[in-house]
Amino acid sequence: MDYFLTEEQQMIKDTARELSEEKIIPKRAELDEKNEFAGAILKDIAKADLFSIFVPEEYGGFGGGCFETVLALEELARGCVGVATSFAANGLGLLPVVIAGSKEMKEKYLPALAEGSSWAAFGLTEAGAGSDAAGIKTTAVLDGDEWVLNGTKQWITNGGEAQIYTILALTNPEKGIRGASLFLVEDGDPGFTYGKKEDKMGIRASATRELIMKDCRIPKDRLIGKKGTGFITVMKTLDVSRPSIAALAVGLGQAALDEAVVYAKQRVQFDKPIISFQAVQHMLADMAIQVEAARSLVYGTARHIDAHPKDMSKGSSMCKVFATDMAMKVTTDAVQVMGGYGYMKEYPVEKMMRDAKILQIYEGTNQIQRNVIGQELNKEYA
């Protein structure tokens, strides 16, 4: 379908697809097998200037919106969701600075993030605070001209690889989540260390680690926005970033569909390619319908967010749910179409099926997204 992309948008999409074909696909099986962080590929992505998409022009970036980000992520995910997740997590980590950071903070950190010489990560989740962000225990106490942070963040993408981390911590625990603030922590800050690298089912080309803060001291000016507004900034960040996860799902679904169709045209049974059998045709048709429907919803939502940034929670959650549920089904069906071959690591759909599962979990489980959608509907029909 023609989505009427501008020349610049088509360039972003073409550049990301070229990176997928030339840099990501040849390495994805090896990275998955070795559980190896794709740092070299991220540097290639930086050379192609895609890291600049997230950053406003006045700080050295492209100044793209949600839609431009979605276009890049979809194509990178066609190559490998693990690599694309690392790229997406960088955007998630720097968005709070873009949304609420001071001019001085933006001038200091955003240019390096735009050129990809510095990477970011986002520290929200804790052992006792996943879907329930109000359960965070990490604290930040002002001591003279420094904030002292104590706590642990869990399942952090780019943990140990990024140079800057946006961390949500309680500055007024008596107020609960309304007493939370956001901070910028740098790799190498005193009292800031990492846990072991997690051994995951999928997205193994990305790095996931704990962030450990034990009397971690950072300068007073590393507060992002105003004290006590951290959770508001986090919610604004997630509303903008959830279509990115949906875009990963669209790219993954398209890749799985491509593999299944090519295989079905080549695989002969009963003296015919299996694509000639109606049972297989119907599976492929349903897969194609679901991928294109998800793409339309994600693109439409991203454009809506860029045009109406204050009205996006429901749409953001809807595209995240629909697209990631689609990816899980389409990758599973791709394995089914390919039969025993699909189950073997020699073929990429086995990896795609493993990668798909996390999309329904991270950045807010699909069950939580349905809660958000239901709550918004309740407000609309009040």
Rank of each mutant, 00 (worst) to 15 (best):
G61C: 11
G61L: 14
G61R: 14
G61M: 11
F62D: 00
F62K: 02
G63S: 04
G64N: 03
G65S: 13
F67E: 00
E68R: 04
E68Y: 00
E68T: 02
T69D: 05
T69R: 10
V70F: 07
V70Y: 14
L71C: 09
A72W: 00
A72T: 02
L73R: 15
L73N: 10
L73M: 14
E74P: 03
E74R: 15
E75Q: 15
E75W: 09
L76N: 02
L76D: 03
L76P: 06
G79V: 14
G79T: 13
C80R: 08
C80G: 03
V81H: 12
V81S: 15
G82N: 14
V83M: 08
V83A: 04
A84V: 07
S86T: 03
F87I: 05
F87A: 02
A89W: 07
A89N: 09
N90F: 01
G91K: 09
G91H: 02
L92M: 07
L94K: 01
L94S: 01
L95A: 09
L95K: 15
L95G: 00
L95F: 10
P96F: 00
V97M: 14
V98Y: 08
A100Y: 09
A100P: 04
G101H: 10
G101S: 12
E104I: 03
E104F: 08
E104M: 11
E104S: 12
M105V: 04
K106Y: 06
K108R: 15
K108H: 13
Y109D: 08
Y109C: 01
Y109K: 07
L110P: 02
L110C: 06
P111Q: 08
A112L: 04
E115F: 06
E115G: 05
E115T: 09
S118I: 05
W119T: 00
W119R: 14
A120R: 08
A121C: 14
A121M: 12
F122H: 12
F122W: 15
F122R: 13
F122S: 05
F122I: 12
G123M: 03
G123C: 15
L124M: 07
L124P: 10
L124V: 09
T125Q: 08
T125A: 13
T125Y: 05
T125G: 03
E126Y: 06
A129M: 05
A129Y: 04
S131C: 13
S131A: 13
